[in-house]
């Protein structure tokens, strides 16, 4: 078994990626397709995908393929872009949570904020001053997930080398993939996974969006790192 990932992209996350200037995250223009593959351009590609789409996507995640110590294929968090519903100037985002659940989510956010800031940020309440919506929580929890040997919606797309497009809460709820069912519980109506050479691009939306080849083609162009 390989001790190291066998086909990590040429330049995956490195210590130099963090911290980075916030301005970089605000960039609107997609990087040239020929731009080097790193976490920075990956995020820009995800952002370009969401902001350039006619449909209203809530988030995009790149699941990066690698191998674990036993040689099993793993899709793990590569990068993600979350578009807050509140930024769209639309209706108040859906939250189905109890006060206890909200307090729990805020506590987790506060703890994570302290952890990455490396200091006591208990006075820094801005990060928890708004309720943590269901889709924000789903996105955050996604950062902890991996999909081994074709498991989950992303793993299915990667192993079959075909996009998986699940539209409609009923279809999500009836899916054999736990991630799809979980997405439905957290208010998603559409989940899509498009395989690429080095992983899978996943998009989710709280709206019902039916399959278009346009989106799939865009993913394939934006995430074609071999060219």
């Amino acid at each position: 078994p390989a001790a190291q990932p066998l086909h990590q992209p040429q330049s995956s996350a490195s210590t130099s990626d963090y911290p980075r200037p916030p301005a970089a995250a605000q960039s609107q223009a997609p990087p040239p397709v020929s731009a080097p593959f790193n976490q920075e351009t990956l995020m820009q590609r995800l952002q370009a995908l969401i902001e350039g789409a006619r449909e209203s996507w809530t988030y995009a995640i790149f699941w990066q393929s690698s191998y674990d110590m036993s040689g099993a294929s793993v899709l793990g968090w590569g990068e993600g872009f979350y578009k807050d519903e509140r930024d769209k100037g639309k209706v108040k985002p859906k939250t189905t949570t109890s006060l206890v659940e909200q307090e729990y989510r805020k506590k987790v956010l506060r703890d994570l904020n302290s952890l990455i800031s490396g200091a006591d940020t208990s006075a820094d309440d801005a990060v928890v001053d708004q309720e943590v919506t269901d889709t924000e929580w789903f996105f955050l929890v996604s950062m902890t997930q991996n999909f081994v040997n074709g498991g989950g919606l992303p793993g299915q797309a990667f192993f079959q080398s075909n996009p998986v497009w699940v539209a409609g809460p009923d279809r999500l709820a009836a899916s054999s993939c736990e991630r799809a069912r979980q997405g439905q519980v957290f208010g998603l109506q559409t989940m899509v996974c498009v395989p690429t050479a080095n992983g899978v691009v996943e998009l989710g939306s709280t709206e019902l969006i039916f399959q278009t080849s346009d989106l799939v083609n865009k993913v394939r162009v934006l995430f074609d790192f071999n060219n």
Partner: peptide, 26 residues
């Protein structure tokens, strides 16, 4: 708990930063 992989750490920092910014500007 402190061993957050680098890619996830950067994503998390960005997510929390954007959220904080939005709250402050709202």
């Amino acid at each position: 708990h402190t061993a957050i992989p680098q890619a996830r750490k950067a994503s998390l920092a960005r997510f929390l930063g954007k959220r904080k910014e939005r709250v402050i500007n709202s």
